[in-house]
């Protein structure tokens, strides 16, 4: 451990702990998930980077949204995302999450995921290779270091807008808003 690392640990231990133990939600949202099993098993071994799949959303802080998102899946994604404790990071996986990819004209897939939930980073390509996942993870470390992986803060701040967008596509949602706007503003003011 070099001096730089050590200073970071002394200054912000929780941040470093979050950074090096990314627990990913075990949720196969799209076809990008085909490269996740090789990544987490022996050959590519994502545990070197501290990425481990976790059974429940309550224990996870990384959400890999692997590929296209159909309307029905969007509901499940929002539900899962809102159940994750803060701080939480989302990575859009493959071109489908960026602009719809090859399903740009499909009647059942939403095109831009960041209209509905905040995204901290994207991995381009179809399929992104396991190496690309590791590049994304190391990049996410840098973002966390610089406090730029602030998707969950943006979600809190602009919750009303996100919720409005979600309701535009999903219609009636069967769970109440997780933040009242005033509460969200208060938390944002307190924690920045």
């Amino acid at each position: 451990m070099d001096r730089n690392q050590l200073m970071k640990w002394i200054k912000a231990p929780t941040k470093m702990a979050h950074k090096y133990s990314l627990n990913a939600v075990y949720f196969c949202t799209g076809c990008g998930v085909i490269e996740v099993p090789p990544t987490i098993t022996s050959r590519w071994d994502a545990e070197r980077f501290g990425v481990v799949p976790t059974a429940t959303a309550r224990q996870a802080n990384l959400f890999l949204i692997t590929g296209y998102v159909s309307v029905k899946t969007l509901r499940a994604i929002i539900r899962t995302y809102e159940q994750m404790p803060e701080p939480k990071y989302t990575v859009g996986f493959g071109s489908c999450t960026i602009n719809g990819g090859m399903y740009w004209d499909s009647y059942n897939t939403i095109n831009q995921l960041d209209k509905y939930i905040p995204i901290d980073g994207y991995i381009a390509g179809c399929m992104p290779r396991p190496e690309a996942i590791f590049v994304a993870v190391t990049h996410l470390w840098t973002l966390i270091d610089k406090d730029m992986a602030d998707g969950y803060k943006r979600y809190r701040k602009n919750y009303a807008a996100y919720r409005a967008n979600q309701e535009m596509i999903l219609g009636e949602m069967e769970w109440p808003p997780i933040f009242q706007t005033e509460v969200a503003t208060a938390i944002t003011e307190r924690e920045g």
Binding site: T29, G30, C31, V33, I34, Y68, S70, K72, T73, A76, M102, Y103, D105, S106, Y107, N108, T109
Partner: peptide, 28 residues
């Protein structure tokens, strides 16, 4: 239905050869 993209409909709007990248994505 969580993964329904309407492939068969989308393929009707693409030429015969352009459908090759589509079909392989049905079964990953």
């Amino acid at each position: 239905g969580y993964l329904h993209r309407g492939f068969e409909k989308l393929m009707e709007g693409r030429s015969w050869i352009k459908n090759f990248p589509m079909v392989c994505r049905i079964n990953l």
